[in-house]
Design a protein around this nucleic acid. Structure first.
Length: 938
DNA sequence: GGGCTCACG
DNA sequence: GACGTACGTGAGCCCG
């Protein structure tokens, strides 16, 4: 049938990856109508292929053709030079899922589709060119990539598809000033900032070409570099010879890429109309479907077909609308051997993404042991890989024998690691920080990732919860198997490793299935809700940063805490004796109910007010008022302070010291607060005492190991600065610009008193008002806070509004915005929903104040998030770790000799964190402290 | 498990 | 005109 490739044959090599990027950037972000799948790049790619085929119908048609793709961004060149192509911007979010579709498109056009792991498309093109040329055939490389120009000559030329212009040796000389066979030499010298090829500093293409022209080739030039007259050029070459040689290895294309096919297999084939039309129709490209139908002289298929043609028939289920597909627990697969896992990995590679979930023995990621991993690539089709299920479901002796029929964890991880770390495969999870930490403890860095919980949060903060059960219920109309059903609850609760494997398969695979379906649903919604930037710049990139902080943990000294606990216990016992004496009887001081009865019934102290539950209020404010009447309330207050410190801090904190690391590992919730703030749990390290002297001493237990110090950097008055900016308060802005005491300035402005020698009481009142404004001030609240008559408080507020008219405007505008849109937003576009804003009754008051506060608190939260995301790169070279975040403070552990470098670097990141997205009209100022422990550093 | 109290920003 | 109110969190304890 065919003769072997050789003389008279003409091979076209199409640079597919370049086409994808061009198509992506040339077209608006198209999505498939039926399900919102991004397909803009696929559409452009198909158009280019179609036009290419049409053009070849007339004229110089090739006999053989292939489209070549980059397999992933990591290649053998990264082993030579890790920074190679390291400064490439991250792939656009909506492009990655289109990669596999462009492969499908190529196959649908019946064109050979080629990629090889570890090699760039350019290397495969080079190898094929050499092979074809050596066989005596002609080659045309269809690309405008200058890196391919080194291949030109001897029957190999290039075609720039943009300009439809042939590139031969003359055009190469025009660009590089040398013949094609010396292009590599010029590139090695000139380097390339786009690909991060270093080259020789100060030498560009012009100079490089002159040098090569003069000396002939690179090796001769390097050998005789000492003869160069210009001192700068001479030094650049002599000092950087090694770097230049590395550059050469980076730009030199590899002509020996392994190829597992023959040139003959690339022979031009006509598209199969059914397959091509089926694909185009499934992608819902109406115009192109019609045009291709005309060209192939066939009838276009009936419009919306819901099934995407994919490489394997198995994957077809994925095209049905995810939400509508029922959940079939029986269909989930249990993966028990390497072959089965390999099949899943092949499917993952084909699709370019995978939903993943881990099952473990604990919610504490630092102690949890991996029990199983579930994967889902296509809605409705998921698997579970058990690795740590144990015999004898929950017997008393805690048998440690593994159940038979499980793969070895090490083997599973070895197979999955390349997938989990592959740049080109998106890993999707619900609360991925958890799973990423589990994998990180096994030496696997999961990236890139998407997180359905964070997507939900970016879209719907303030509207609903973002846990898997809530999301599945709301969006998929499906209640997942409750974990209680497997583990039980209370005393008899078992851990996941004791769950029978067939039960675990259903539960675990379902979670991955749900996650994938949510992702398919949320992906296009993110764009429509206009929170893609929020998600991509403020949510997702924080995941690895927080994971690293949590895993690092903070060293807490058990002895210090233990000694404090003992001291507190003694003091409390003494106070209890006094309290019993004063009360005339023994009772439980910790019981507000009993205390209320003693104070107000037995002792008949004034002001006993019962709340809605019928109990007397005995809060600190009530007891403080009563302290003037009697000694007992004061003692109770003292006792309560100690009880709090002991139970919540000095006792509980000790239980959180990880026995393996000797450190305390908190867990941050990215979705814990509606405003964008983080929250901290298990333990909460964002509320360690500081306001009282006794409490502050607990921070002495947060220490740095020998040779290291604790460094604290905190934003000064960040919320007030943001308020001054958003409400446009010129006087306040000026005070910040001048570095003045902001509360004193406020007092001076309001009460017409000079700054010099100001009464501290006046300043205190002004400070309370400043904070009140941030919280959505009310006369009642301010009156209570300052313990002044309500009318007086209202007078303060009126005067404040008079002096800072921007405030009232900001409040009114914000509430009006919330009423109209149902949400407010931060300067960075984070949306906080306010569903109660139009409610009647007292709820409306809450909603209004929350609406006023949210943009300010939320903007401050966004600022420190941005700083945290940039921090790892900024301190990369230093022996320093970021450990904790407390809303406006970042805590670091730093080697003593690195402190002087860290502080200015971290401060610069924090102070500049708003830019360039937002230009604040007020400077952000960061204060720094250092010491052996947190108390000293603060 | 809800309510109270109190630690933080 | 009355109602109830500072904004955002998490944890430990009591008590039903």
């Amino acid at each position: 049938m065919t003769t072997t490739f050789g003389k008279g044959h003409h091979l076209h090599l199409i640079d597919g990856s370049a086409y994808i990027f061009r198509a992506y950037h040339a077209l608006p972000p198209l999505t498939r109508k039926s399900d919102g799948l991004p397909v803009g790049a696929v559409a452009g790619f198909c158009n280019i292929l179609f036009r290419y085929l049409e053009r070849n119908k007339s004229g110089d048609a090739p006999t053989h053709v292939a489209v070549i793709f980059d397999h992933s961004s990591k290649t053998f060149r990264n082993d030579i030079y890790p920074a190679y192509k390291a400064n490439r911007p991250e792939l656009p979010e909506d492009l990655r899922p289109q990669f596999p579709l462009t492969r499908e498109a190529t196959r649908a056009f019946n064109i050979a589709c080629i990629e090889t792991e570890g090699y760039e498309a350019d290397d495969i093109i080079a190898s094929l060119s050499c092979k074809a040329r050596d066989a005596g055939g002609a080659v045309t490389i269809i690309s405008s990539d200058k890196d391919l120009m080194q291949l030109i000559g001897d029957g190999v030329n290039m075609l720039d598809p943009m300009k439809n212009k042939l590139i031969g040796p003359d055009e190469v000389f025009e660009k590089f000033g040398v013949a094609p066979n010396r292009v590599v030499d010029v590139q090695s010298l000139a380097g390339d900032s786009v690909d991060n090829v270093p080259g020789a500093p100060g030498i560009g293409i012009k100079t490089a070409a002159l040098l090569i022209q003069e000396y002939g080739d690179l090796e001769t030039l390097l050998a005789r570099a000492g003869e160069i007259k210009q001192p700068k050029r001479r030094e650049a070459l002599v000092d950087n010879a090694e770097q230049i040689r590395i550059s050469k290895r980076l730009v030199q294309l590899d002509c020996d890429t392994p190829l597992d096919f023959t040139l003959d297999s690339l022979e031009v084939r006509q598209p199969e109309p059914d397959i091509l039309m089926g694909f185009l129709n499934a992608m819902e490209f109406r115009t192109l479907t019609q045009r291709v139908a005309n060209s192939l002289k066939v009838a276009p298929p009936p419009a919306p077909a819901m099934v995407v043609a994919t490489g394997t028939p198995d994957a077809d289920a994925g095209a049905a609308p995810a939400a509508a597909l029922p959940f079939d627990h029986a269909s989930y697969e249990c993966v028990r051997d390497a072959d089965a896992l390999a099949a899943w990995i092949a499917l993952i590679r084909e699709r370019g993404h995978v939903a993943i979930d881990t099952e473990t023995t604990s919610l504490d990621e630092m102690r949890a042991e991996l029990v199983g991993i579930s994967l889902c690539v296509v809605a409705g089709r998921a698997c579970y890989i058990p690795v740590g299920h144990k015999q004898g479901g929950g017997d008393l002796f805690g048998s440690t024998d593994l159940m038979p029929g499980q793969m070895l964890l090490a083997e599973v991880l070895a197979l999955l690691k390349p997938v989990l770390e592959d740049d080109a495969i998106l890993k999707i999870g619900q609360n991925m920080k958890y799973d990423a930490k589990i994998f990180a403890r096994h030496g696997v860095t999961v990236a890139p990732l998407d997180d359905t919980m964070l997507m939900s949060y970016a879209m719907h903060a303030g509207l609903n919860a973002h846990g898997m059960d809530a999301l599945s219920d709301k969006y998929l109309g499906h209640s997942p198997i409750p974990i209680k059903q497997l583990l039980g609850s209370g005393k008899g609760q078992i851990t996941f490793d004791r769950v029978p494997i067939d039960e675990a398969v259903k539960y675990a695979a379902e979670d991955a299935d749900i996650t994938l379906r949510l992702w398919e649903l949320f992906k296009p919604q993110l764009h429509r809700a206009r929170v893609t930037t929020v998600y991509e710049t403020l949510e997702r990139p924080l995941v690895p940063v927080l994971a690293a902080m949590e895993m690092a943990g903070v060293q807490v000294d058990r002895d210090t805490l233990s000694r404090m606990s003992n001291a507190f216990a003694q003091k409390m016992a003494g106070l209890e004796d006094e309290i019993y004496q004063l009360a005339g009887e023994r009772f439980n001081v910790g019981s507000p109910k009993q205390l209320g009865e003693i104070l107000f019934d037995k002792m008949s102290l004034p002001g006993g007010e019962k709340g809605k539950t019928g109990a007397y209020a005995t809060g600190a404010d009530v007891l403080e008022d009563l302290a003037t009447e009697h000694e007992l309330p004061g003692r109770v207050l003292d006792w309560r302070q100690l009880a709090k410190l002991k139970s919540t801090y000095t006792d509980a904190l000790q239980d959180h010291i990880n026995p393996e690391t000797g450190r305390v590992h908190t867990s941050y919730s990215l979705t814990g607060a509606v405003t964008g703030r983080l929250s901290s749990t298990d333990p909460n390290l964002q509320n360690i005492p500081v306001r009282t002297e006794e409490g502050r001493r607990i921070r002495e237990a947060f220490v740095a190991p020998k040779g290291r110090v604790i460094v604290s950097l905190d934003y000064s008055q960040i919320e007030l600065r943001i308020l001054a900016h958003v409400a446009d308060l010129p006087a306040m802005k000026q005070a910040f610009l001048d570095g003045h005491d902001i509360h004193a300035m406020t007092a001076s402005e309001m009460f017409n008193v000079p700054l010099e020698g100001m009464d501290p009481m006046i300043r205190r009142q002004a400070k309370a008002i400043n904070f009140g404004v941030i919280y959505g001030i009310s006369g009642f609240g301010l009156a209570r806070n300052l313990r002044i008559p309500r009318a007086e408080a209202q007078g303060f507020i009126d005067r404040y509004f008079e002096r800072f008219p921007g405030i009232r405007e900001y409040m009114n505008d914000t509430i009006a915005f919330a009423k109209e849109h149902g949400h407010v937003q931060t300067l960075f576009g984070r949306k906080i929903h306010t569903p109660e804003i139009n409610a009647k009754g007292p709820g409306a008051g809450f909603a209004k104040r929350a609406a006023i506060n949210a943009p300010i608190q939320g903007t401050a939260a966004d600022v420190i998030r941005r700083a945290m995301i940039r921090m790892p790169a900024a301190i990369a070279g230093m022996d320093a770790k970021m450990l904790l975040q407390v809303h406006d403070e970042l805590l670091f552990e730093v080697a003593e000799d690195a402190v002087d470098a860290l502080i200015p670097a971290a401060r610069a990141i924090m102070e500049g964190a708003a830019a360039p997205a937002v230009h604040l009209s007020v400077p952000l100022v960061v204060d720094a402290g250092r010491g052996a422990n947190w108390a000293q550093a603060h």
